Simulated assay, not measured.
Amino acid sequence: MPDTPDRAGATGAPDAEDADGLTVGQVAARLGVTVRALHHWDGIGLARPSLRTAVGYRLYTAGDVERLHRIVVYRETGLGLERIRTVLDDTTEDVTGALRAQRAQVDAQIGRLERLGTGLDRMIEAHERGLLLTAAQQAEIFGPDWNPQWPAEARARYGNTTQWRQFAERSAARGPEQWQEIADAVAGLDQSLAAAMDAGVAPGSPEAGDLVDRHREVFSAYFPLTRRMQVCLGRLYESDPGYRAHYDTIRPGLAAWFRRCVDAAARAHGIDPDTATWE
């Protein structure tokens, strides 16, 4: 068979009988490396050609090519060039130990990549589904009135918004325990709102302002909630039949009362609730 430039390749043994006097380009083609790499290894003294032509061109002998072949193999295992130099030149070097150490580093890297892959899978799923919970888990955490189709409906409506992306990124890092904590915080807030309304707390009072701040803090577990966005939510609570029914089931008139509390708090911070937008 006639000799070809890629006959050996990066992983095959070089041909010893015809390797003397090979140029840089020929050796690069045989080993699957760049000419620039060979020049670099020559420059740092890792693998220098043993022969030179009368005009100074580099020529590699069979022994040179064998050394280069070993460099390529060790480099593909992830060893750095200085470590490869030690492995090749230091007769006291424990080559097996060096390779075992490199294997341990590769295993660690594989573990990191697997964890990264798992995280990316969860992030993708969270962007697509919102909640990474089964229907049974959702019912247990959010109560029997929860509709497991709501996250899909929310994605269809808000999937292209910044808030949905923020929600998905947080959701990807949460399991049932974290969602239970959030659900408990929301339920606790609802009861505090009802108790304040029963006690005659007036919108605009310090007590009402504290509850408005608490609402923003609790709901920022889903995505950062600004005061202007909170005003928009207050409107939605009162105008949307589903939201209004939820709050009015807790206490009749609670949705309207809480909206007045939110509007009063917004005015206290220089925001006109009549013109506030979702920002």
Rank of each mutant, 00 (worst) to 15 (best):
F258S: 13
L31D: 07
D42A: 02
N147P: 07
L79M: 08
L113D: 00
R170C: 06
A221I: 03
D274F: 00
L254S: 09
H246G: 06
T134V: 10
D42R: 05
G63N: 11
F223S: 11
I250E: 02
F167V: 08
A135V: 02
A194I: 09
A265R: 14
E128V: 02
G117V: 04
T161K: 04
P273K: 12
E93A: 15
A266I: 12
E114Q: 11
A265Y: 13
A101F: 05
H246A: 07
L225W: 07
R227S: 14
E279T: 11
R267P: 01
R103E: 14
D18W: 11
L88A: 04
G111R: 12
S205Y: 03
I182K: 07
S220F: 02
A8F: 08
A264Q: 02
D240P: 02
L51S: 09
Q26R: 15
V231A: 13
D248A: 07
T249Q: 07
L38Y: 05
R48F: 05
G9I: 11
Q191H: 12
W41A: 09
T161Y: 03
L31F: 07
V33I: 15
R36T: 08
Y57N: 13
V87R: 04
I271W: 06
R83T: 15
V186I: 15
D190A: 04
D18L: 10
V218R: 06
A47H: 11
P151K: 13
T4C: 04
R174P: 07
R30E: 05
A172V: 06
S205K: 09
Q191K: 09
Q163G: 01
I141M: 09
G32I: 01
A54Q: 12
T118S: 09
A29P: 05
G32R: 01
L51F: 11
H269Q: 14
W278I: 13
A256N: 00
P203L: 12
A54W: 09
L233D: 00
T162G: 03
L51W: 08
A245V: 07
T161E: 07
L99C: 03
E153L: 14
S50M: 03
A256Q: 10
V212N: 00
G209C: 08
G45D: 03
F167I: 09
Q178R: 04
H69C: 03
L59H: 10
D198C: 01
C261F: 00
L116Y: 07
P49L: 04
Y243K: 00
R83Q: 15
S205D: 09
G12R: 13
L51C: 01
Q109T: 14
R165D: 03
E207N: 04
S205I: 11
F167W: 14
